[in-house]
């Protein structure tokens, strides 16, 4: 019983942090470009996360227990390590992917518990993680070139259309993140009604109380992009995460979004890009699951 309560509490805490951290990825552009107010952005993002979780979160329901044993103690261990890791990463501003960390920790726990994971599924997840960034970069590179090559007769009409599209795509990005990342978390609590309800409350709480600094920073710094770039990056990212959700594959939204932003940047002939931050993020994609796996193995 205690372990069940602990599971709910840890899922709620993680949901709060993830919501606060990822809100900017979904709605940073529309808030930063002042298309919507910060309050409306919060509603748009948290609403998208929640709807994604409710409608499509179930696609991830058979994901986590194909990797780790369905034992309450191990679930709590995975959640606890994830929580500590993610909280530390947030504090030190390290771009850690929760999805990757959870999968890594789960594999470490499985090794320790001598549980045999569904290896074809594990390979599929790893393949998705390796392929997704390349697909993101290539898709956004070409799509951005196509979009920017379109002859525009009325600049202001184009801006108006982009603004509407950005609001829609921001919601879609939040929706896919809700379905995949929050879906994975919900799967650890067996998608029960209580878990979903607690998670939705935590999502809104995280969006309201934990997103402030991040949303301001990301909106103004990282998403200092033109409307077309932002639209392409969010579109590519959300399509890939949505695709992964349909195949029950946990895919980091940060991974696809960072790659598509990089791809959009590459599509310009005159490049003034700093590749160092991108390479640091890429390094974290490799370190997160491996470090998580090590911790899972040692602590479980």
């Amino acid at each position: 019983m205690i372990l069940e309560y602990l599971t709910i509490a840890l899922i709620a805490l993680l949901s709060m942090i993830v919501s606060g951290n990822n809100l900017s990825a979904a709605v940073g552009t529309v808030v930063g470009s002042r298309i919507v107010s910060r309050q409306f952005g919060l509603l748009l993002g948290a609403g998208g996360f929640s709807l994604g979780l409710i409608i499509e979160g179930r696609f991830l329901s058979d994901s986590i227990f194909r990797i780790m044993p369905d034992v309450s103690y191990y679930v709590v261990v995975v959640l606890l390590i994830s929580f500590v890791l993610f909280a530390l990463a947030t504090y030190f501003r390290i771009p850690l992917s929760l999805t990757m960390a959870i999968v890594g920790i789960s594999l470490g726990v499985s090794l320790r518990a001598r549980f045999t994971p569904d290896m074809p599924y594990v390979y599929l997840v790893i393949a998705a993680w390796v392929l997704a960034p390349f697909l993101s970069i290539i898709s956004s590179f070409y799509l951005n070139r196509k979009v920017t090559a379109v002859k525009i007769n009325d600049v202001w009409e184009a801006a108006r259309i982009y603004k509407i599209l950005l609001v829609l795509i921001s919601f879609l990005t939040a929706f896919t993140l809700g379905a995949n990342t929050f879906g994975l978390l919900a799967a650890m609590g067996h998608d029960s009604m209580e878990i979903i309800t607690v998670m939705i409350i935590a999502i809104f709480a995280g969006a309201i109380f934990l997103s402030g600094g991040v949303i301001r920073r990301v909106s103004q710094d990282i998403f200092g992009m033109r409307y077309a770039n932002a639209f392409v990056s969010l579109l590519v990212s959300s399509v890939l995460v949505e695709g992964a959700t349909f195949f029950s594959l946990p895919l980091s939204n940060t991974q696809t979004l960072t790659s598509s932003v990089f791809g959009s940047g590459l599509s310009y002939n005159t490049k003034a890009m700093m590749s160092k931050p991108f390479l640091q993020v890429v390094a974290m994609w490799i370190i997160s699951p491996l470090f998580g796996m090590l911790l899972g193995f040692l602590i479980a």
Binding site: R34, V36, F40, W156, A159, R160, K163, V167
Partner: peptide, 12 residues
């Protein structure tokens, strides 16, 4: 107000 903000281009 939301629709107005979307439809009216602030830059314009």
């Amino acid at each position: 107000h939301f629709l107005k903000k979307i439809m009216v281009i602030g830059e314009r």
